[in-house]
C-alpha cells in the first residue's frame, strides 16, 4: 500500500481534493462556498480519470500521419468521460447558483442555517 501511494501520486492527490470538496460542500454554512466545494469535488474526479487514462510517453488520441496502431495513443475513453462529466457539473452548478440567487434575494443572506431558520418560520 505504502509504495503504491507514491507511484500513483496523481490519484492520491485527487482523493485528497475530493475529500476537501466533499467536506466543504457538506459542512460549510456559506452557500457559495458549498458550490465551490462541489466544483472541487467534481474536478478531483476528472483529475483521477485523466491520471488513469494517461499512459507514459504516448500521444493524445488524434490520428495524424495515418498511424492507426493502438500502441501510439493513450486511452481516449477517460477523456471523453471527463468531457461528459464537465457538461454535467456545469449544469448542476448553474442550477445551484440560480437557486442561491433566489434565496439571497428572498432572505438577504448566504448562510444556510439562517435561511433554514427563517424558512422554517413561514407558513406554507
Amino acid at each position: 500500500m505504502g509504495p503504491n501511494l507514491f507511484v500513483n501520486y496523481y490519484e492520491a492527490a485527487a482523493m485528497v481534493l475530493f475529500g476537501i470538496g466533499f467536506t466543504t460542500m457538506l459542512l460549510h454554512p456559506n452557500l457559495i462556498k458549498k458550490i465551490i466545494g462541489l466544483n472541487i469535488m467534481d474536478t478531483a474526479i476528472y483529475l483521477f480519470l485523466a491520471a488513469k487514462g494517461y499512459i507514459e510517453g504516448k500521444l493524445a488520441p488524434i490520428i495524424v500521419n495515418g498511424d492507426l496502431a493502438m500502441e501510439t495513443y493513450i486511452n481516449p475513453i477517460p477523456s471523453s468521460l471527463v468531457l461528459t462529466g464537465i457538461v454535467v457539473s456545469v449544469s448542476v452548478t448553474a442550477i445551484s447558483l440560480s437557486l442561491v440567487q433566489r434565496l439571497y434575494r428572498k432572505y438577504n443572506t448566504l448562510n444556510i442555517d439562517e435561511i433554514m431558520f427563517k424558512a422554517g418560520q413561514e407558513a406554507d
Binding site: 452557500l31 428572498k106 444556510i112 424558512a119
Partner: peptide, 10 residues
C-alpha cells in the same frame, strides 16, 4: 415560496 426554495437547496 420560501419554504420550498430552502427545501430544494437542502
Amino acid at each position: 415560496n420560501g419554504k420550498t426554495l430552502a427545501a430544494t437547496m437542502r
